[in-house]
Design a protein around this nucleic acid. Structure first.
Length: 185
DNA sequence: CAGTGACG
DNA sequence: AGCC
């Protein structure tokens, strides 16, 4: 897969870092980096989108063309993504139920690409108390959260080790393409 | 309070 | 959309 070799090169320029929770500074279990004009970051000060890597200070590299094309095909949204959050799951990494709500444009979908080990994904409704269900997300699966599902709570319970050989070190990579700001035109 | 948390 |  050509995307994987691209990703290796890009991640070398914008290394994964360990994000921490606002206020508490508690480290999250996933490691993160971003591509695109804007990247989602979290630190003691809060959640936000910013143009540069919090540790290197360099701008995030561009979103790979292959991912841009995937957005064009599947997002059904007439403007390009501005951000690609890259989450790396290793060991006991998980992601609790949350909403993606730090964007301004809620009309654009969030498009997620799973790579590497299979994830046990969980999704509920737009209210925290809505019932949830879980299903597996395999390497190569693309999930579009758009329309009424845009604000659904979702997370990753765990990943299942050794279910893919795509990533040399094992683990799971999740790429989420997002639009952040409202389009100007 | 917490919390992209634990639990579902 | 939030609301333990």
């Amino acid at each position: 897969m050509a995307l994987i070799s691209d990703l290796r090169v890009l991640v070398a320029e914008c290394p994964f870092y360990t994000p921490v929770m606002p206020g508490s500074g508690k480290p999250m279990s996933v490691r993160m980096t971003n591509f695109g004009q804007l990247g989602w970051v979290t630190d003691k000060a809060g959640y936000r989108y910013q143009p540069c890597h919090p540790e290197t200070g360099r701008p995030w590299p561009a979103i790979p063309a292959q991912l841009q094309e995937l957005w064009e095909k599947l997002a059904r949204y007439p403007h390009p993504p501005e951000a690609c959050l890259v989450n790396h799951y290793t060991g006991k990494a998980r992601m609790g139920l949350h909403q993606d709500k730090d964007e301004i444009d809620f009309d654009a979908p969030v498009l997620s690409v799973s790579l590497g080990d299979t994830a046990v994904f969980r999704i509920g409704g737009s209210s925290r108390k809505d019932p949830t269900r879980s299903f597996k997300l395999q390497s190569g699966d693309v999930l579009v959260m758009g329309g009424p599902a845009r604000m659904n709570f979702h997370g990753v319970d765990r990943f299942i080790p050794a279910t893919s050989t795509l990533l040399s070190g094992g683990g799971r990579l999740n790429l989420t393409l997002r639009r952040v700001n409202l389009p100007v035109n």
